[in-house]
Amino acid sequence: MKSTKLRKLITGTIAASLLAFPLSFGTVPAPAAEAGTSSILGAIVGGVAAHSQLDALLRKYNDSEEGRQEYFREMKKQYGVNEDWALNQQLDRIMTNLTAGIGAVDSSVYNKPYNYFINNQKGFNAFCTIGHNLSVNTGLYNVLTNEDEIAVVLAHELGHGQKDHPVKGARNSLNMQILGAATGSQAGALVAQVINNRHITKPMENEADALAFDYITHTNYNPGATAAVWQRVLDLSKSKASAVQEFLSDHPADDDRRDAYVKKLSSYSGNHVTNKDGLIRINTKDFTTPAAAGGMSARERSYFVMGNLAAAYHNGHDKRRAYVDGNTVMLGAQPIMTCVSGDESASTLAERLNAIK
């Protein structure tokens, strides 16, 4: 390969790597902005001088309104924009709800409002990058159809954004690597390291998961969706759903994330409600095992019922008697479970709930 072509390849790759920080739902490189690419290559060859180059670049695209809007436009150019009316209406609604949920615990969300759009990529992914720029792959909607579960995915990404994980991860990782690159002959090795390092750490993932639960519980979304979404991914991974299989290849164990959320749900209920492999127990007494329904496995659905019960206990609805409204078991003002074919009757469940709650 000619030196000119090699230089262009390295320059473009490094620029894209510096700016990209797709998070927990897949590897999608963010677009390379033209500004600063040649200086980045020079900075890497120069070693220590890269600190100022890197900081200036990240400050521009993460902190300045002009820079983050420029970066957002570049994202749209590279990935394309899905203009589906219904999906965009839903995304607007989710982002509005989540922003209010975040605002209840972290008012800084209003200081740098998120930019977001649905892109045309077919993989199962959503990602937040620098500048509070967020995008959702069209392919995500082939896996998730429940708004509550989609909201959990986005809440996780917003957790990364709120803690500035994208820029922190890029700066920490790249500073260490750049400092070790003193000559141009080492640039190739550096590029390989940057490409293979997604800049995200396990503590960052855990923090974003915990924040997602906090945000969701400050909205009207079912908190049980936090566990249900990972059960859905696990269920689909058993099939030949290639998008999910690809997603699973380089991410934290989904059963661990599901189980962590089940513990949070139990704690949220005041430890009144537990779930063991789909069997919901209240105060250590068996309540029910919901049937599969609505495109959900029995176990996925059980987490939604658990979420409703957890919310009922957390909000004090357990002080009221359970009753039946149509086919729905109610506890105070909180719907618990709408019974379908394969479930026990709503009246049976309401009676049992009153006996064990």
Rank of each mutant, 00 (worst) to 15 (best):
K2R: 13
K8Q: 14
L9N: 09
I10R: 13
T11F: 02
T13H: 01
I14A: 14
L19C: 09
F25C: 04
F25Y: 15
E34M: 05
G36Y: 10
T37V: 07
I44S: 04
V45C: 12
G46M: 11
A49C: 03
H51R: 14
Q53H: 11
L54R: 07
K60W: 12
K60P: 01
D63W: 06
G67S: 12
E74I: 09
K76V: 05
K77E: 13
Q90S: 12
D92Y: 08
R93M: 10
M95F: 11
M95N: 07
T96C: 05
N97R: 13
L98Y: 04
Y110W: 10
Y110V: 00
N111T: 14
N111A: 15
N119E: 03
Q121K: 12
F124Y: 14
I130H: 03
G131T: 05
H132V: 01
N133Q: 06
V136L: 11
V143S: 03
V143C: 06
E149A: 02
A155M: 03
H156P: 06
H156C: 07
G159M: 01
H160G: 06
G161E: 04
K163N: 14
H165C: 02
G169Y: 01
M176L: 13
M176K: 14
M176T: 13
S185H: 09
A189C: 01
Q193M: 15
Q193C: 07
N197W: 01
R198F: 08
H199F: 14
H199I: 00
T201I: 03
K202E: 12
E207C: 04
A210C: 03
L211G: 01
Y215W: 07
T217A: 05
H218S: 00
Y221M: 08
P223N: 01
L236I: 11
A243S: 15
S249D: 10
D254A: 14
D256G: 06
R257H: 05
A260K: 13
L265S: 00
L265H: 00
S266W: 01
D277H: 11
K285P: 02
T288I: 11
A291I: 03
G295T: 05
A298W: 06
G307Y: 06
L309I: 05
A310L: 08
A311F: 03
Y313W: 10
H317K: 12
H317R: 08
D318E: 14
R320L: 13
R320E: 14
D325I: 00
T328K: 09
V329Y: 07
G332R: 09
A333R: 13
Q334I: 05
I336Q: 10
E351G: 08
R352T: 15
L353N: 09
N354I: 01
N354M: 02
